[in-house]
Nucleic acid binder design. Structure first.
Length: 620
DNA sequence: ATGTGGCGGGG
DNA sequence: GTGTACGCCACAT
């Protein structure tokens, strides 16, 4: 029996003897050699909500099995709360994850089945949730070391394969220092955007936090001896260039490889060229090549056990800009211009040689240096979000904030024995008919130069409202006998039993505490705790880390509001979204009115704050 | 107004 | 893969 502590980088499953085997990819802590842990003990399942008598439903399932339309592995009755109401469900274990989509339609069509639940949670995510594993955190694993498994061979002395004999345990979620490498291709482009069939790669830039910084290219001998250009590594041809890139990544043993728009440009291009030239792009921990995972209409370039982060996607979520070019993002973050070579002229710089070629080399290096610098700045926050969402870093870096919040809630639901709601299946037409929610209150700024201004802000207005008014779909009362509530924003509509929102008069029960408010409450409590710790902290490194954590929590809390209006959010509730903004408008208007009593007149207001001018003469 | 189709980043 | 982005803008109807 062997024990290891591993940093969990990635997870997937394969099929062996028609059964799923979970594979955990990571680094052995301390030694940082590769490790792949295998777990064949985890069984796929879904929940069935019976329509009427639960035993009738079980009988129907058994009949379905007799008819050869279902293969039941194990079947049990369980009680879980659904929107906080305890209900009895059938937990149906199957043999293979892919049987879930296969059987889904037949199960839905049974009269005794009211609904299927948690039937669309990918198997590896289910494994992380049910075992409480946190990607990028440290796990304690125990089992037997083996020499090879399926296509994986551990003749590489850098790789261990461990067959688990019990479930892994999370022992530490503090993030380790990660080894990162950025890369970027420059391509010959005489006809505009390059075509991988004809246009060769002319440079591959690399930067890292493990001491490697270079540009591999077939040109550049002319700068030999030029101290300033010593980062150039000259190779014979394009094939050798790609081979050298692969070798560099492998030998560096980095955890993360970073590109800019590398999902859609660099890796697809590199794959095509490698294929044409007969080079193996075998960067995966198990020796596998790049795979393009379909994510909607876009692709994500993925290697087993080597985390590929495309910073372009991350930056689009992180900041709000008019454009997201590497230049623009870099300028925004660091206030410095990057070396710029106009994209359409790259082939001319290459052909012309001399100073222009020199500039092209510098540009190539500058791109990877900038990419790594941005990663260094941004990834800590994303690692925190990974910890909260509890899903692979690769996935989280490509998720919208709404999805991140959703996986966070799925985890919380599991902890509280609460059934996860299904995704709503609304169409765009439904949304059009539903109309848009009105946003925050805005008073257009008064023209002119103002002096003696005071600023007023609500602290986390929307999250606070979610908590104080218990805004949550599970405590929303859907009935229409609300006409007796008076109109007017300054009248408190709440009753003993309900919080009643202005304008729409939606009622939210005061008891019990809603699922979303209780989770948001935990987030805010944790955030204020971190802020207090941060204030008291004297170690600058720890202080920065605490700051990043509290920022991640702030983002998460603020995302909850927006998610209510997001069509594919499992806790989607247009009423909740409307209630929040309605209460928000009421609160800021009330605050402005109150301020006027003391002679402060708002000259500009937006959503959760306003600027006011002091004018004692107008005071009543 | 309402519908739809394409784009972003990359060279 | 227990799967199928997303939000915005131009342009047409």
């Amino acid at each position: 029996m062997t024990k290891r502590n591993m940093i969990l980088l990635d997870i997937d499953y394969i099929t062996k003897d028609d059964k799923p085997v979970i594979r955990l990819f990571g680094k052995v802590k301390g030694k940082s050699n590769d490790i792949i842990a295998l777990d064949d003990s985890f069984v796929p399942y879904l929940y069935i909500m019976p329509n009427g008598d639960i035993d009738d439903c079980i009988n129907d399932l058994k009949e379905l099995e007799s008819a050869g339309k279902l293969k039941i592995n194990v079947l049990e009755k369980v009680v879980k709360t659904d929107y906080q109401i305890p209900k009895e469900f059938i937990k149906l274990y199957l043999t293979h994850p892919q049987e879930v989509p296969q059987y889904r339609d037949d199960l839905w069509s049974l009269d005794s089945v009211k609904a299927l639940r948690e039937h669309d949670i990918p198997f590896y995510r289910r494994y992380l949730i049910d075992n409480d594993l946190i990607p990028m955190g440290e796990l304690e694993i125990e089992g037997e070391l083996i020499d090879s498994y399926e296509t994986i061979d551990s003749d590489d002395e850098n790789l261990e394969i461990l067959k688990l004999s019990k479930s892994p345990i999370t022992v530490n979620t503090d993030f380790q220092d990660l080894k990162m490498m950025s890369f970027d291709l420059e391509v010959y482009n005489p006809h505009g955007m390059p075509n991988s069939e004809n246009d060769e790669i002319i440079m591959i830039g690399i930067d890292s936090n493990v001491g490697i910084r270079k540009v591999i290219s077939t040109k550049g001998e002319e700068f030999l001896g030029d101290e300033e250009m010593s980062f150039i590594q000259s190779v014979r041809d394009e094939k050798e260039m790609i081979e050298e890139f692969v070798k560099t990544v492998k030998e560096s043993n980095v955890d993360i490889i970073i590109g800019y728009n590398s999902d859609n440009f660099d890796f697809p291009y590199l794959k095509d060229r490698a294929k044409i030239l007969g080079v193996d792009l075998d960067l995966g921990m198990d020796g596998s090549t790049v795979k393009f995972l379909r994510r909607g209409y876009a692709n994500a370039a993925s290697f087993k056990g080597l985390l590929h982060i495309d910073l372009y996607l991350v930056m689009r979520r992180y900041m709000s800009l008019d454009r997201y070019t590497l230049e623009r993002v870099y300028l925004e973050l660091f206030g410095e211009e990057k070396i710029d070579v106009p994209g359409e002229r790259i082939y001319q710089f290459w052909d012309n040689g001399g100073e222009e070629l020199k500039n092209l080399f510098k540009y190539s290096l500058d791109d990877v240096v900038a990419t790594l610098k941005i990663a260094d700045q941004i990834l800590p926050l994303n690692l925190e979000l990974t910890r909260f969402a509890g899903q692979p870093f690769f996935d989280v870096s490509r998720m919208s904030t709404g999805q991140q919040a959703e996986w966070f809630l799925v985890r919380k639901a599991y902890e509280r024995n609460e059934m996860v709601p299904n995704k709503p299946n609304m169409t765009k037409g439904d949304v059009v008919r539903r109309g848009n929610n009105s946003g925050g209150y805005v008073r257009e700024p008064e023209k002119g130069l103002h002096e003696n201004l005071v600023q007023f802000d609500f602290r986390s207005l929307y999250p606070s409202l979610i908590i104080s008014k218990n805004i949550s779909p599970d405590v929303l009362v859907k009935d229409d006998d609300l006409d007796y509530f008076a109109e007017g924003n300054d009248i408190d509509l709440d009753t003993d039993e309900y919080y009643v929102c202005p304008e729409h008069y939606y009622k939210f029960k005061k008891e019990p505490k809603g699922f979303i408010p209780s989770v948001v409450g935990d987030i805010l409590d944790e955030r204020f705790k971190l802020k207090r710790e941060m204030k008291a902290c004297e170690d600058p490194v720890l202080k920065r880390s605490l700051d990043v954590q509290q920022q991640a929590l702030k983002r998460l809390a603020n995302t909850m509001f927006g998610s209510f209006g997001f069509l594919r959010f499992r806790w989607y509730s247009f009423e909740c979204a409307q209630a929040i903004t309605a209460w928000g408008r009421q609160h800021i208007k009330k605050a402005m009115k109150e301020a006027e009593k003391y002679g402060f007149y708002a000259i500009y207001a937006d959503t959760d704050g306003f600027y006011a001018k002091y004018n004692p003469d107008k005071k009543d």
